[in-house]
C-alpha cells in the first residue's frame, strides 16, 4: 500500500513526518534496524533518491543513526523520541485551532466542544 501523500507539500518532508510518526508509534522502536532506502521507497511508492533525502534529514536531527556495520537504526535516545512526539503533537494542535478559528469558534468555545466530545467518547 503506497503511503498517503499530499499534492502541495514537498514529498521528502512528508516522508520525514511519516517515518517520525512510525518511530513514535513504535512501528520502529528505539534501536531497531530500519529497512533499506530501496525497500522503504518501494513500500511508499516514491523515488529512492527522495527517500534517501528524507533519511538524510532524519539523520541530521538525530532520530536515525547510521552504523557502519549494521546499517540504519532508530536512535536509542528515548528523550529525543519523546521530544519529537511533543513537537508533532503541538503542531497538530496548532493546526486544529487554526481550522476551528477559520470556522468561527473562539478558544473558549473550542475547549467546550473538546470537553463535550471527550465526555461522549467516555
Amino acid at each position: 500500500m503506497a503511503w498517503n501523500l499530499n499534492a502541495d507539500k514537498p514529498i521528502y518532508t512528508q516522508l520525514v513526518e511519516i517515518i517520525q510518526t512510525q518511530i513514535i508509534s513504535g512501528r520502529y522502536k528505539a534501536g531497531d534496524r530500519l529497512p533499506s532506502v530501496r525497500e522503504l521507497a518501494a513500500e511508499a511508492s516514491v523515488n529512492p533518491n527522495t527517500m534517501q533525502k528524507a533519511f538524510a534529514e532524519l539523520e541530521r536531527n538525530g532520530l536515525i543513526v547510521t552504523q557502519r556495520t549494521s546499517g540504519r537504526t532508530v536512535t536509542e535516545d528515548i528523550e529525543l523520541i519523546n521530544q519529537t512526539q511533543a513537537h508533532l503533537a503541538e503542531e497538530c494542535i496548532n493546526n486544529f485551532f487554526q481550522t476551528m478559528k477559520e470556522l468561527g469558534y473562539s478558544e473558549k468555545e473550542i475547549l467546550k466542544l473538546i470537553e463535550k466530545a471527550t465526555e461522549e467518547v467516555e
Binding site: 499534492a7 502541495d8 507539500k9 514537498p10 514529498i11 521528502y12 523515488n47 533525502k53
Partner: peptide, 11 residues
C-alpha cells in the same frame, strides 16, 4: 519535483 512543490506550493 520537490523544487516545484517548494517554490510553487503545488504538485
Amino acid at each position: 519535483v520537490d523544487q516545484i512543490r517548494e517554490e510553487y506550493g503545488r504538485s
